[in-house]
Design a protein around this nucleic acid. Sequence first.
DNA 1: ACGAAGAAAGTCAAATAAAGTCAAATAGGA
DNA 2: TCCTATTTGACTTTATTTGACTTTCTTCGT
Lengths: 144, 144
Amino acid sequence: MKRSLADRIEQYIKVLIDRSEEKQIEIQRAELAETFCCVPSQVTYVISTRFQEKYGYLTESRRGGKGFVRITRFTISSDIYTIMDGDKLFDFVNELMGKKMLDSESGNMLKHIVLSASSDLDDEQRKHLYNSVARALSEYLNLN
Amino acid sequence: MKRSLADRIEQYIKVLIDRSEEKQIEIQRAELAETFCCVPSQVTYVISTRFQEKYGYLTESRRGGKGFVRITRFTISSDIYTIMDGDKLFDFVNELMGKKMLDSESGNMLKHIVLSASSDLDDEQRKHLYNSVARALSEYLNLN
DNA sequence: ACGAAGAAAGTCAAATAAAGTCAAATAGGA
DNA sequence: TCCTATTTGACTTTATTTGACTTTCTTCGT
């Protein structure tokens, strides 16, 4: 079972993230390509296929001199909070704060933002937003 | 995290502003260039790319003898980004984190949640969400 | 007071560095 | 075989660095 180059690069990046303090790394695309003796676009391929948002990663980058690719990991979860309304979301956030899984700074900010951002949505969209936020939050906190 | 010359100059200036009483500094372009062993226009480059109004800075200058560059920091409001897209929202959040107005814990969480929550929206709704979040965030942080 | 000299900052474009895009070629598995 | 994932490289876009040249002030000598 010979692993492809792409697989090996993927593993390498994941190890780097594991070892990082913030679950976040910054790499130079060209340097990594050098390490694996491949073209730089191979790295782009790996990042774009394996480190997508749906797999729990956020990537940002900058071109030009001293450019970089930053990859941040969040852990994916299944969606347990499928039926979520505003109150439940707030209860959920409060509970997380109570359990010290979310600091009150972040929790309060989130409540404010969600409330404000949902104020001009219709019921359908609002419910959708609450669900997305609940899911994203539990992903972020590595619940489930 | 290797930083470019431009990044280092940017940091240096930001520290000076942090330490200043009035959130305002006056520098001599040539002197700063001397400090960093670079050409003066490098400083101009940094100022014009990093200390723009949209990032919450006002710059003024005078040429000739006793010339100077004055940089003033003010609190940004989301209104500056009239049409907010994902990148601008992320810039906004990154900028706030850089200014320590938002801790990196909260900022990273927010980026994740917004990205995740916007993934299954159409362009119209996504843009709307970004704007709402930007507005809500600046409300929360008491900007404006 | 006036004009010339010198001091600073600005402008702009070239050179270089790095990442992204895209599509053709190839490999591997059902 | 046929389909999908991978590999490669030519070309594009964006960011940084540098330096020659321009503009705008201040100062100084007359």
